[in-house]
């Protein structure tokens, strides 16, 4: 997890100023600035919200409300790699819950949790549109289909 430092906050501030130029109102710049905050700090940290509030003038409580409204923003610290595993109908039928169970056994990873070494976080997804090749997951920004325990195992080994 990247530490909150004055330098990092300064980078964030610079990026938000750039974003504010692109949008008609400061509120509109909030959503993209969350991505920037995630990029820099790994999640939308309270310090980052404070900085966004300082720059845009949008009250901090309101920013927290917006950030928590959307499910795909990271509002708490996450691991280096994020496993977004689908457990919707098709994936469930094809054994997605076995994979959830396996992740728990092997890495101690529970849905919504992070491994103690901060390597992986697991997020349970609703349908990601890969029903034909279920079960499927998105690992960071890559998508993987037709998963089995063995395949998952080898895949995860390549994410250190």
């Amino acid at each position: 997890m990247p530490q909150v430092t004055t330098e990092r906050l300064k980078i964030l501030r610079g990026k938000i100023y750039e974003l504010m130029e692109l949008y008609p109102s400061y509120q509109a710049a909030l959503l993209p600035s969350f991505f920037v905050a995630e990029e820099i700090f790994g999640f939308i940290s309270p310090e980052a919200i404070g900085e966004i509030s300082n720059v845009t003038g949008v009250p901090a409580a309101e920013i927290r409300g917006v950030a928590s409204f959307y499910a795909m923003y990271k509002t708490k610290p996450m691991g280096r790699h994020i496993i977004q595993l689908c457990t919707n109908v098709s994936c469930m039928i094809e054994g997605a819950y076995d994979l959830v169970e396996y992740l728990k056994e092997k890495y101690g990873l529970t849905p919504g949790g992070t491994t103690p070494d901060g390597r992986f976080s697991l997020v349970i997804m609703e349908c990601i549109g890969a029903c034909g090749t279920a079960p499927a997951m998105i690992l960071d920004t890559d998508s993987y289909e037709n998963l089995t325990k063995d395949r998952l195992d080898t895949l995860l080994e390549s994410y250190k």
Binding site: P59, A61, E62, R64, G65, S68, A71
Partner: peptide, 9 residues
Amino acid sequence: AFAISVINR
């Protein structure tokens, strides 16, 4: 004061 807000959904 903008101190409170609706959190989550």
